[in-house]
Design a protein around this nucleic acid. Structure first.
Lengths: 228, 228
DNA sequence: AAAAAATGTCAACATTGCTCACATGGAAAA
DNA sequence: TTTTCCATGTGAGCAATGTTGACATTTTTT
């Protein structure tokens, strides 16, 4: 499919990753073949093994590429939300972060599945900013902006990531599909609950130290976004 | 591996499913082959095609089997929690439901991935009780017990399912791994936030009783959403 | 310029999903 | 009971796939 006058391709590794991303988006992960990717780039099947030790290795690289793209989109979304909402940039950025996450998942469901399909052994990932780091920063900013209390900060990553990742997983897995409204509406409808759960760890008093916990105070004081 | 004196197996379909479950638990979904499953049962590869139209069809059946097991474990867990906590059975059952969900995922991570890996076209699923139906019932009981307000009932499924499924997905996908404490501790640490989010107003409705569910959204008044 | 390393090709192997024609055996029909 | 029929099994075989090894070509190093 690609024109290649020279014997050497130039940057076959990246080209194979991109071809794999495109093919997976079409035929799914199960229907993806290394040979097809090689043919798509216009190269012999065995050439791929000069850049990836196995098909699994290539899929690993595809996943890493996905994480990069996701982090990029999240960064862009938060930056935009920040500039558009000067009165509470941290809160806007936080919501934009989650929306960007599920939006990426819905727009690239198969790529998303490769990313979270199996435990990939990633390199130390030194310079790259990961989605998880972005989430941490957003939560820290929420604390700095006093939207989130310090005592609610503990475990906020796990909770937030779980909700957003769960919604993304249900949408990409086909357990749920969106009808009329887009992802934005669905996500926004969840935002109040997410924020309530986020701000409530310290303010929610639970009776009992083992399940079942009993809630005594429902809504947190400091969660400003719940008051119209 | 199975003893088979007769020419006919008797119940090859179910045997293949069970073999597939066992093999997938070992080598993963990607490394699973229909031929190996057939050989494991002691049958010719082509025999499988008398019971499943394709490998994908078999995996579909494996997923359905997983949903059955999951629903069973969830039912058992809620029943036990109910009997152990007579003062607030609905709340205890609700928490046990979520814990059973993530516990199943952690104990059978690869099976869980097959279940939610790709959109499976399920039969009407008439008599079987699905995990989703159990969740609905648990939420209804919370309303009946007045732990959950009626106005908070709307969209409670989507939120709850998202959190729990997200945690399960992160754990099975290898994005998160549990260190010292077991799943129970991690899940319990999330319960306060989940309950707080649950008891805040939502506005999303899930339509349908079998996947794929259809999401209808109604934007709330107080929902501070993003300006875009 | 020559040697070495990197990167490509080609041929081949075992395995896989799947289909075909045929064999078998239990259940219904005679 | 005997015969027929159909669900269920076997075996050979095809195209495609992941992977490897020997060889070719280009680039880089010496």
């Amino acid at each position: 499919m690609e024109k290649r006058s020279q014997y050497h391709h130039g940057n076959l590794g990246q080209a194979l990753i991109e071809a794999a991303v495109a093919l997976i988006a079409q035929h799914g992960v199960a229907g993806f073949s290394l040979r097809e990717a090689a043919a798509h780039v216009g190269v012999s099947p065995s050439a791929a093994y000069r850049h990836f030790s196995s098909k699994e290795d290539l899929l690993n690289a595809v996943a890493m590429d996905g994480f990069q793209r996701l982090a990029l989109q999240m960064e862009h979304a938060t930056a935009e939300a920040r500039s558009l909402n000067p009165e509470s940039p941290a809160l806007a950025a936080f919501q934009a972060l989650g929306l960007a996450y599920v939006t990426f998942a819905v727009n690239n469901p198969l790529h998303f599945q490769v990313m979270f399909g199996m435990p990939l052994q990633a390199e130390p990932r030194t310079e790259e900013t990961s989605p998880y780091q972005l989430l941490q920063a957003a939560l820290d900013d929420l604390v700095a902006e006093k939207v989130l209390a310090v005592e609610d900060r503990t475990g906020a990553e796990l909770y937030t990531w779980s909700v957003v990742h769960g919604l993304a997983g249900l949408l990409t897995g086909g357990a749920i599909c969106l009808s009329d409204g887009g992802i934005t509406e669905i996500f926004n409808s969840l935002v109040p609950r997410i924020l309530a759960g986020l701000c409530s760890a310290g303010n929610t008093i639970l009776r009992g130290s083992a399940p079942p916990f009993v809630v005594e105070t429902h809504l947190a004081e400091g969660c400003q976004s719940l008051k119209s």
